[in-house]
């Protein structure tokens, strides 16, 4: 009985070790033969693909995908399946820049409706002299509302001979 209990605990405690995996978070993840960017490229793996981690060395992971093994920068991976963009205003689902541009004026209206003044001073009376400009909240709204579809970025990369 005691042996079975120990055996059971051993099986259960080792389960997470077998399950250590990660997901590709960048557009493509390249597996290299060594933990260095100049080493031979073994294969590329698509974003969202699950990979199994065998060992870690500094900023690199030694991983396997299907039957292939190789090193990948840790920064190209994430522990849980990538779930898309997170947005503070919930506007990340817009899919075209045109749509965003068309909405620019209504966004400003919406911002005003939410209480943003068109030109407000950030820190009030106690602001340091160096913060001498009047902050316009539309400037940040414009940044956040500039949507560029991924296909357009891929074409941009292609035209520059990049991303290969």
């Amino acid at each position: 009985m005691k042996t079975k209990l120990i055996l059971t605990l051993m099986i259960l405690t080792t389960l997470p070790l077998f399950a250590e995996s990660a997901y590709i978070s960048s557009l493509r993840g390249t597996l290299y033969s060594n933990p260095s960017l100049g080493s031979k490229k073994i294969t590329t793996v698509k974003r969202g693909t699950e990979i199994q981690i065998s060992k870690k060395e500094g900023a690199w992971l030694y991983v396997s995908h299907n039957s292939l093994k190789g090193w990948i920068p840790k920064s190209n991976t994430v522990k849980t399946m990538p779930k898309g963009k997170v947005s503070i205003l919930g506007n990340a689902s817009r899919t075209s820049r045109m749509k965003a541009r068309e909405r620019a004026s209504s966004d400003v209206t919406a911002a005003s409706a939410r209480g943003f003044m068109q030109s407000e001073t950030v820190a009030g009376r106690n602001r340091p002299n160096s913060e001498s400009l009047k902050f316009d909240p539309r400037d940040i709204e414009k940044m956040e509302n500039l949507v560029i579809p991924e296909e357009e970025l891929l074409s941009f990369l292609e035209a520059g001979g990049l991303g290969r």
Partner: peptide, 26 residues
Amino acid sequence: ATIYVTKVGRSVALFAGRSELTYYFS
């Protein structure tokens, strides 16, 4: 000009992990 800078920045970001972020440029 802002669209161009954003395209360059977001193109790099496609290869730079953190797919949960949009990256805004000005």
